[in-house]
Amino acid sequence: QELLLAECLGKHPLQNRWALWFFKNDKSKMWQANLRLVTKFSTVEDFWALYSHIQPASKLTSGCDYSLFKDGIEPMWEDSQNKCGGRWLITLAKQQRHTELDRFWLDTLLCLIGEMFDEHSDEVCGAVINIRAKGDKIAIWTREAENQQGVTHIGRVYKEHLGLSQKVVIGYQAHADTATKSGSLAKTKFVV
């Protein structure tokens, strides 16, 4: 009966095919050898089947990342579709790993696969979550840092979907600036 029901239901196609990547920090290997493609999906149903069977981000060990990118874009600055882009960065306090991290990451994923950025959804490349002892980070990567209108629209919608207060300010950094400066020193190009 369940099989028959599943066949009758049909699946809901997404606008894009998405790839989930996993990074585990092993210092004995090169950075790219630590980055693995987990799987790709292109329907709502397959997204949940995947999401339900992987570790929640809050249970990963420090140094690990999940990345969700459109099929054909690798989760690294060097990819041709990322190199002129940047990221909206959410920096979390340590205690937020247990209270908000998983919800923020799930809402980030839903924003991406649901194409919730209106006519600017094509600007989105993917999203990354970094699990780090000093504080976790979530970011949405977009393809063109100079597209102020698109970038700020994405930032405003993203902030609203995370349920962040108007008092909270989030910043956008161009990858070109992040790549040449260490961590927190990277220049903030836009804020919302």
């Binding site: 606008q15 149903e45 339900s52 839903l110 194409e115």
Partner: peptide, 20 residues
């Protein structure tokens, strides 16, 4: 036509597929 889904719609599928 673009395939767009809102949060509530997507969340509606969560527990159906978590239990399969």
């Amino acid at each position: 036509e673009k395939k767009r889904y809102d949060r509530e719609f997507l969340l509606g599928f969560q527990f159906i597929f978590a239990s399969m």
